[in-house]
Nucleic acid binder design. Structure first.
Lengths: 157, 157
DNA sequence: CACTGTTACTTGCGTACTCAAGAAATCTCC
DNA sequence: GGAGATTTCTTGAGTACGCAAGTAACAGTG
């Protein structure tokens, strides 16, 4: 209507990002839930932990990786701890921190889910896009901001 | 680890879609909320209604547009009705349907929010991407599936 | 006309978060 | 070494959904 013409592409891309996220998430999430009893964030948490040193991470770091708040992580891990996929481990140097430690059971569960989930992701994307397009989509999305709250991207300590 | 090499681009693109959605949504949503007291879905709902014929839509159609379930729409509209931005309107031909009708007040609120929201969207994207990149991002995202549940894309009746 | 779907919508219950307010451990600066 | 600020994590209250089940209205069949 009265918007400057140049804003249209941005709005369009934004709207499509919202819709693409909603539809793909809905599909992949329900598959993961049905086949392995994990939510998308459960899966991502296990994955991040599995790649971390000693398969454990401070809860606050896990929060940053998953783009969740600390309380979100507490709630997320509640479920994973109840299922024995992750356990708490104390930190001798700093009594405030509790590590989230991936258990063997958690690693197995991730391994089992990983195969079919990765397959679903790939199938979904390749059903609609060519490999080159997927690649370029990934590169474009990577340029968007990661976190705004506080940028501790690389802390030496 | 043991995944076929070809799956990597898809997984990477997917992960970045999740993160890009989480971070941009968080930012834009909090701006919209702070400046105009609307959630992203409130805004989208008002926008969709404003573009509809006679500024009203069956609730079930609104659900499909917003990628929400019928119950999600009921809850979403509860808030908008309470604020007088949308009202219920009966359908003489079919007593089951209730239209969601944009009020003048709703149209004004949308108009007010629209300007700054569109500006924020544009600023956020253009801060990280060129116009050409935004354009191509939009095109790529448009190719992803819209809805899976039931495809009544164009119903004649 | 009754009988059996099917569609539109609402409601109760559960989930996955967020934010604000805490408690406890650690760091800082005098 | 002690007071105050900061960091880590948890908890209570609230929000925004989804799913399943329910009700009311319509549509098709005998």
């Amino acid at each position: 209507m009265s918007e400057p013409q140049n804003a249209a592409p941005a709005v369009q891309a934004w709207t499509r990002l919202l819709r693409a996220h909603a539809s793909t998430t809905r599909l992949l999430s329900s598959q993961l839930q049905a086949e392995h009893g994990l939510t998308l964030n459960d899966y991502e948490a296990l994955l991040v932990l599995s790649q971390a040193e000693e398969r454990r991470l401070k809860r606050v770091d896990l929060a940053r990786r998953l783009l969740l708040t600390p309380s979100g992580v507490t709630r997320l891990l509640e479920g994973l701890e109840r299922e024995g996929l992750v356990e708490r481990a104390a930190c001798a140097q700093d009594l405030r921190v509790t590590y989230a430690q991936l258990t063997d059971s958690g690693a197995e569960r991730l391994e089992a889910a990983s195969c079919s989930h990765v397959g679903s992701v790939r199938a979904l994307l390749e059903e609609h896009l060519t490999v080159a397009e997927i690649d370029s989509l990934g590169s474009l999305l990577a340029k968007l901001p990661e976190v705004e709250g506080g940028d501790e991207s690389c802390r030496p300590g």
